[in-house]
Design a protein around this nucleic acid. Structure first.
Length: 282
DNA sequence: TTGTGTTTTATTGCCTCC
DNA sequence: GGAGGCAATAAAACACAA
């Protein structure tokens, strides 16, 4: 039987002759099989380690052998203290664990790589969850924006309707007063300006954004000569005050008569409290 | 038992630092 | 220029389902 070389370590010259690197097989390492079924010796089992097996083992071609659990535990402890390996610590660890210093260095190198991968995975998960949360927030905001736009449109429609009702009410009052005071003769009220004349004499209502009714196309709602003069009562279930309140509260929109047109029949409502750019139809 | 995926050990080549 | 670190990769060892 061939006597094993020094228990410290022996080398099987191996795979990379070009660089002269060597595969390391430590005798102590090979015998250090406490509790490990992964080590080459551990896989053989204690009873099987007879002389022939030892001889076979020592003459085997290069074999990768896993470190024992104890070795790994010690290395882990050391790694937790400091993940970089100074030469003195490397030599000491190798001596303590019965490994080659190079094995210890390689283990630390691989361990650092695993650590980095884990860290990257953790970072990725954090970023992903942050991204998911932001996406959800974004979608919620888009939905809210759509709802608000729809609400603004509906409120604007209500406002226009109300405006027409107020105008027609005003005109009808004036018309009946004038009719009563001037007898049967129906006269067109005098106007002070061209615009007022064009508007009031015809019972026109000027609504920004909507075409004014002219001679040929009078408002079906506001024709004072029409006996079927129609007032459309507000069909909403809110009273006037409630609606106004609702408007100013929810949308920050206030409708007011422009001072320039005050006194005339022409009303231009000014919207304040909302930026023009906000309006979805602008 | 075997095929396949994962983990661990080790190599290689390049880079940086002293 | 040598030592050591790192990324990429090879290959052995291992786990596990079919």
């Amino acid at each position: 039987m061939a006597v094993p070389p020094s228990p410290d370590a022996f080398f099987l010259y191996g795979s990379s002759p070009s660089l002269g690197t060597r595969t390391i097989l430590s005798f102590e390492d090979g015998c250090n099989m406490n509790g490990s079924k992964r080590s080459f010796f551990g896989m053989l089992g204690t009873d099987e380690i007879v002389n022939e097996d030892l001889e076979d083992y020592f003459h085997q071609p290069e074999k990768k052998r896993r470190l024992t659990t104890d070795q790994v535990r010690s290395l882990e402890r050391s790694f937790e203290e400091e993940n970089k390996l100074e030469p003195e610590r490397k030599v000491q660890l190798a001596k303590d664990l019965g490994l080659q210093p190079r094995q210890v260095a390689i283990w630390f190198q691989n361990r650092r790589a695993r650590c980095k991968t884990k860290l990257l995975e953790k970072d990725f998960e954090a970023l992903q969850s942050s991204y998911n949360s932001l996406t959800a927030q974004h979608e919620a905001l888009l939905k809210e924006t759509d709802e608000l736009k729809a609400e603004v449109i509906s409120l604007k429609e209500k406002l226009e309707m109300k405006e027409r009702v107020v105008e027609s009410s005003d005109l009808s009052t004036r018309f009946s007063q004038e009719s009563a005071s001037e007898g049967e003769v129906l006269e067109v009220p005098k106007s002070t300006s061209k615009q007022e004349d064009a508007c009031s004499s015809r019972g026109d209502v000027f609504i920004p954004g909507s075409p004014p009714y002219t001679n040929g196309s009078q408002s079906p709602l506001l024709d004072p000569c029409d006996s079927s003069y129609i007032f459309e009562p507000d069909q909403s279930d809110l009273s006037q005050e409630e609606e106004d309140d609702e408007l100013s509260k929810n949308c920050l929109v206030t409708a007011s008569v422009s001072p320039k047109q005050e006194g005339s029949n022409q009303c231009i409502y000014e919207f304040s409290g909302l930026d023009q750019a906000f309006w979805p139809w602008s």
